[in-house]
């Protein structure tokens, strides 16, 4: 432990309303859900925020419910909750897969979907799955609630639309992907307990040989979790031919901006992203 815990304060008001009031009163408070990201920073002495407020075990945030074709996951849903839910397994298998890839079993027991989204790592496992399932996200603060497409939530590297005092309340997924071809592949540094070098998620609805609908999203391809709109546009409404695959790869290469870092290289990430896209297109 490289931090002195006496330098930190943690309050746990115990209800969502109390948390929102506290956040409204003190904008310096940093919300903590499962703490799986924060504890790592604390351990190595790099945790910047010193005033923390706990969302752990807030019942109002931990739920999974389905109403008229919309599945709603509370922000406090853990990855273990996701892995164990029969509706998610049936309707959103990619989300189950990415939850299983997230950290270790212990991380999955503590870590929450909302925390993972708010942490806003471009390498996070679940956001690409949420993006290709056309998720919307609901935010809550003392001033009220607002809902927006999840694709508009991330603004840049570790930047989101969240305002001071605002929390993620829930993520909503339309249950209409049963007939879509679905794909996700993570290329990590190893097969378990790994951070993505890159990942690609995709859903597509075929009409004969023609691509009627397509959604693509990746991890560590740009500075944030993001849809790959230019590549989607090339493929939409077309049949998969060798020429189209080449055009799609070119579009992908033009819209992603992978980087060199301690885990991999930009050129490797670029090449593998194109290979994964091709693997998906070939499967259609």
């Amino acid at each position: 432990m490289r931090s002195d815990v006496r330098d930190y304060t943690l309050t746990a008001p115990g209800s969502l309303n109390a948390v929102l009031s506290a956040l409204a009163a003190n904008p310096r408070l940093t919300p903590v859900a499962g703490g799986t990201e924060l504890m790592v920073a604390l351990g190595v002495g790099r945790l910047g925020p010193h005033e923390l407020i706990s969302l752990h075990r807030l019942k109002e945030l931990r739920f999974i419910e389905e109403h008229s074709g919309i599945l709603t996951l509370g922000a406090g849903t853990t990855f273990t909750d996701i892995r164990r839910n029969a509706t998610i397994a049936r309707e959103f298998p990619l989300l189950v897969q990415t939850a299983a890839w997230t950290g270790s079993i212990a991380n999955q027991n503590r870590g929450t979907l909302g925390g993972n989204i708010a942490n806003a790592s471009p390498a996070a496992d679940s956001p690409p799955a949420l993006l290709v399932y056309d998720a919307t996200i609901e935010l809550v603060s003392a001033n009220g609630r607002r809902t927006l497409p999840y694709g508009e939530f991330h603004l840049g590297y570790k930047k989101t639309v969240l305002l001071p005092g605002e929390l993620i309340y829930a993520v909503r997924l339309p249950c209409r992907f049963a007939k879509h071809r679905q794909y996700v592949r993570k290329v990590g540094t190893r097969n378990a307990q790994a951070i993505s070098k890159i990942a690609l998620a995709a859903t597509a609805l075929m009409d004969g040989a023609t691509v009627r609908e397509i959604r693509l999203a990746g991890a560590s391809l740009v500075d944030r979790p993001a849809r790959l709109h230019a590549t989607e546009a090339v493929v939409l409404g077309k049949a998969i031919t060798p020429e189209l695959r080449t055009l799609a790869a070119a579009a992908l290469a033009s819209e992603i901006k992978p980087i060199d870092d301690i885990r991999s290289t930009a050129k490797y990430r670029m090449a593998v992203a194109c290979n994964l896209l091709d693997e998906f297109l070939l499967s259609l």
Partner: peptide, 16 residues
């Protein structure tokens, strides 16, 4: 050593 953490120094797990 720039990757002096088990997150970035990759030893194989049982899954590997």
């Amino acid at each position: 050593m720039a990757n002096n953490q088990m997150t970035n120094y990759i030893m194989p797990t049982s899954a590997d």
